[in-house]
């Protein structure tokens, strides 16, 4: 049968450290040694102070829902089988915001902006593991 694969990340020299980390079940963000700014998406130069002393450093994986949407009509045919599906933007406790998805067992009627979440991982293949999110447990 003819199927269309979902688009997957193509890591670049600037981003492969991020995807290397998720493969090992760690979430990292670009961190500036000069001004301590932490940011995503990754880059080799700090957007705040233009220092080149930027490396990937681990974060807690905890944050809050900054925004969430439910896609009913996907713009790409590979996602038709998932629809309706959610996409969240999470603001990490350390500051940066990132896209993600709440795991399928999430009760969407209980989701709102500000909901505490924590990262979990979905292995796609030997190269790519996607960070996902679930409602935070504990405090």
């Amino acid at each position: 049968m003819f199927t269309i694969d979902k688009p997957l990340p193509s890591p670049t020299e600037d981003t492969e450290g991020y995807w290397d980390a998720t493969r090992e079940g760690k979430l990292v963000v670009s961190t500036c040694a000069s001004c301590a700014h932490r940011f995503l998406p990754p880059a080799k130069i700090c957007p705040k102070c233009l220092s080149s002393e930027v490396s990937f450093q681990p974060v807690s994986g905890r944050g809050r829902v900054f925004s969430w949407i439910v896609v009913h009509r996907p713009q790409h045919p590979a996602f038709l089988e998932d629809a309706p599906y959610n996409v969240v933007i999470v603001e990490l406790d350390e500051g940066p915001r990132m896209h993600g998805r709440l795991v399928p067992e999430t009760d969407l009627s209980a989701v709102s902006v500000g909901l505490p979440v924590e990262v979990t991982y979905q292995k796609i293949n030997d190269q790519i593991t996607l960070p996902m999110f679930k409602a935070a447990t504990g405090t």
Binding site: K6, P7, L8, P9, S10, P11, T12, T15, L40, P41, S67, I69, V71, P74, Q75, H76, F79, D82, Y85, V87, I89, M98, H99, G100, R101, I124, I128, L130
Partner: peptide, 18 residues
């Protein structure tokens, strides 16, 4: 972006949803 597309966040329409 490689940080949005894998989740099915594609095009201007999802952005405007946010």
């Amino acid at each position: 972006s490689q940080f949005a597309i894998p989740y099915g966040d594609i095009g201007a329409i999802t952005f405007m949803g946010h």
